[in-house]
Design a protein around this nucleic acid. Structure first.
Lengths: 109, 109
DNA sequence: CATTCATGTGAACAATTGTTCATATAACAT
DNA sequence: ATGTTATATGAACAATTGTTCACATGAATG
């Protein structure tokens, strides 16, 4: 039960996933494909980022399995990989939304 | 409803939180204080990191409100700030654990 | 096949970030 | 007040990372 074998690897992998999410551009991209399948070009247009940068970032997101790709003809569509991704984003938004005092906005987020 | 005012700020803040979690050392620290109040010295000992580095990292974690501090005499104890933090870690571990094949646990998500 | 459209990728550079070292602050004890 | 223990912080440097540019790949169409 040496703590420096499997758990450590897990922590490293986990850190890697968060690191990928820890960039505003990638996060915007992730939000765009959160519940909708979108082609790369549309993502580039919607974010105002260069096609190259979007592609690089999608590559990172895909490498961490945060999104998955699906080719249809010339275009490649991306979408959030699973429910966990959506849940995590929702949870973190709630986390951020919390102030020290009670009394959150009361309307839906 | 201009998308470049409040939502963008939110995304930036969100990215910041993930960026803080996107470092293996900070993540280890976060796990250590996940459900237990621990003094800085103990965290340094448990992780093998220098006191200074632990302190810097706890500062970042605290700045993102991922942990909160509580002083007791000379020592300062840290603990995960709220339930969202625990939930997010759990969700992401599940995310990582997933293989490409289908066949999820079949219980409710 | 050559061309066009959509996306991917390597290399280089700029910018950000982690880590250390030295020192500061804070609480307690003598 | 001085000393000791515990934690925090600023500055400097090393390492990592984001972004661009030029070009490669892949799929459709004439």
């Amino acid at each position: 039960m040496n703590p420096t074998s499997q758990d450590e690897t897990r922590v490293d992998d986990l850190a890697e996933v968060f690191r990928v999410m820890g960039d505003a551009n990638r996060l915007r991209i992730l939000v765009l494909v959160l519940d909708r399948l979108r082609p790369v070009g549309e993502i580039a247009a919607a974010t105002g980022l260069s096609q190259s940068l979007v592609s690089h970032n999608l590559g990172r997101l895909r490498a961490s399995r945060l999104v998955r790709a699906e080719r249809r003809g010339k275009q490649v569509f991306y979408v959030a990989a699973d429910q966990h991704v959506r849940t995590v984003l929702r949870d973190m938004l709630e986390h951020i939304g919390e102030v020290d005092r009670p009394g959150p906005p009361l309307g839906r987020a």
